[in-house]
C-alpha cells in the first residue's frame, strides 16, 4: 500500500542525527516495547508480514509522528485486537475484562536464547526454475496494490538488471493477508540512479532492491 512507511525519495524530513554505539535504548518503555513485541510474536498468532502491515496501516500522520518503538506498540495493539487476544475495551480500562483466548504456551525465559538464535528462515525449496537469470534486463511493474507489498514506490515501473538470484522466499504480499507463503523466486535488482531519479540522479550511484518474481517483467536489452 502507498502508506507513510514507503519513505524512499521523500524530502523535507531534515538531517540525519547520528548517535553513539552504546545507546541501545533511550527509555525503559522502549525495552518493554521490544520485549513485548518479540514475546507476543512467539505466540504464532501472526507472521512478520502481518506485523509490518499492521504498522504501515497506521494513519500516515500517526506513523510519521511516532517513534519507531511507538509504531511497534501501536501495530502490536492492532494485531492483538484483530486476533481477539486483547480487546480495545481492555486497553482503555487497563484491566482484564474477558477470559484469555487459548493460545500456544507463552515463550519461556529458558527458550528465549534458542528461539532468537534459530530465528524464522523465510526461504523455501524451489518448485520451478527461476524465470530470470543474472545479467538479464528487467522492468518492475507499475502497480499500486491496496494491500501489503515490498515493492517501494520509487522503484516501480523502472528498468534494472538482475544482479543475483537469491532463491525462493515467502511472498509478503500474500503472507501478510493470511494467504499462505506463496513462495516465489527472489532477485537482487540493481538500478542506476538516473533511472530512479531522472536528471537529479547521482551519476555515480546505483540502488538495488530485493524483488520477488511477480514484481518483474522482462525488458529488452
Amino acid at each position: 500500500m502507498n502508506g507513510a512507511q514507503d519513505l524512499g525519495g521523500m524530502m523535507g524530513f531534515g538531517q540525519v542525527a547520528g548517535e553513539p554505539e552504546g545507546e541501545v535504548f533511550h527509555a525503559d518503555w522502549e525495552k518493554r516495547a521490544l520485549a513485548l513485541t518479540i514475546a507476543s510474536g512467539a505466540l504464532g498468532e501472526w507472521n512478520i508480514d502481518m506485523s509490518r502491515h499492521a504498522r504501515e496501516t497506521l494513519h500516515p500522520t500517526d506513523y510519521l509522528a511516532s517513534s519507531y518503538y511507538e509504531v511497534w506498540i501501536k501495530g502490536l495493539e492492532k494485531l492483538l485486537v484483530a486476533r481477539g487476544l486483547v480487546t480495545s475495551e481492555e486497553m482503555a480500562a487497563s484491566s482484564v475484562l474477558h477470559a484469555p483466548r487459548p493460545t500456544s504456551p507463552p515463550l519461556a525465559a529458558a527458550d528465549v536464547a534458542p528461539a532468537l538464535a534459530k530465528g524464522t528462515p523465510c526461504d523455501r525449496p524451489p518448485q520451478a526454475p527461476a524465470r530470470f537469470k543474472v545479467g538479464e534486463a528487467v522492468r518492475t511493474l507499475n502497480v499500486n496494490p491496496s494491500g501489503h507489498t515490498r515493492l517501494p514506490r520509487y522503484a516501480r515501473g523502472k528498468r534494472g538488471r538482475i544482479e543475483r538470484v537469491h532463491g525462493v522466499f515467502i511472498f509478503p504480499d500474500a503472507n501478510a493477508h493470511g494467504l499462505g507463503p506463496s513462495a516465489q523466486w527472489l532477485y537482487l535488482v540493481c538500478f542506476p540512479a538516473s533511472e530512479l531519479w531522472g536528471r537529479e540522479g547521482d551519476p555515480a550511484l546505483d540502488v538495488s532492491i530485493d524483488a520477488w518474481e511477480s514484481y518483474l517483467e522482462g525488458a529488452a536489452g
Partner: peptide
C-alpha cells in the same frame, strides 16, 4: 498497561521479557 494485560492474561512470561531485554 499493555504489558500488565498481556502478563495477566497469560500470553507473555515477564521473565522471558527480561531475558529478551
Amino acid at each position: 498497561a499493555l504489558e500488565s494485560l498481556m502478563i495477566e492474561k497469560g500470553y507473555v512470561d515477564p521473565a522471558a521479557l527480561d531475558a529478551i531485554v
